[in-house]
């Protein structure tokens, strides 16, 4: 069941902590509330993925996850009044300004805003789902499919999140899930696929990048 504006608002002030939804800060409810969603803003934190020293990405590669981050990316933290220019065909990771805490019976989904989509800005490529029990900022993928650079500023309403009430509470919410890799993140989180057991226990090694 998709939550309406009033349902979302009631969940934000639910007296029962097990049912309360946390989204903070809400700077202007009037601007941020949609009929069935809540607009979210852009934070100051970006992770740009580099390609100059990599021939390809091998999803089965098995270096330490942190090494991949350094090798493949550059972190950029802006001051609140600075800007980030996303060039055509460029792809970066960014995160919501807002910190979320979802109760065990609510799931969420982050979507772009049509106003930006019409200008070529794509928000989140494939990982828009937010698990019940998740807490932290939401990392999403930004790419510019247009032909002109796009100026992004922290605090911009970049996307929207809608919430779904589940028929029953999850038996193992995200906070209790074995191997939850992104719980209580406060910054952009890069891929931690290298921590997946299929990869950590595998023996495949990239010949080009020993």
């Amino acid at each position: 069941m998709l939550l309406s504006d009033i349902d979302i608002a009631k969940r934000l002030v639910d007296p029962d902590p097990h049912k309360r939804l946390v989204v903070t800060p809400i700077i202007s409810a009037k601007e941020q509330f949609g009929p069935s969603s809540l607009d979210v803003r852009l934070s100051t934190d970006f992770q740009r993925l580099e390609n100059m020293n990599r021939s390809h990405i091998d999803l089965n590669e098995r270096p330490a996850a942190d090494e991949k981050v350094y090798r493949e990316g550059k972190r950029i933290i802006l001051a609140a009044n600075e800007s980030f220019f996303l060039h055509p065909d460029e792809f970066v990771l960014a995160s919501t300004l807002e910190f979320f805490r979802l109760p065990g019976d609510l799931a969420g989904r982050i979507e772009g805003r049509s106003s930006w989509g019409r200008q070529g800005l794509l928000v989140h490529a494939t990982a828009g789902f937010v698990d019940p029990g998740f807490a932290g900022v939401l990392t999403f993928e930004l790419s510019n499919a247009g032909r002109l650079p796009i100026k992004l500023t922290p605090g911009l309403r970049i996307g929207q999140v809608c919430f779904f009430q589940m028929l029953t509470r999850s038996l193992v919410p995200y906070y209790a899930k074995h191997g939850a890799k992104y719980f209580e993140a406060t910054t952009v989180e890069t891929s931690k696929a290298a921590y997946d057991p299929e990869i950590t226990k595998g023996s495949h090694q990239d010949q080009n990048n020993p």
Partner: peptide, 9 residues
């Protein structure tokens, strides 16, 4: 960070 951006918005 939030307080900074919040004030800026």
């Amino acid at each position: 960070e939030l307080a900074d951006v919040h004030a800026e918005v």
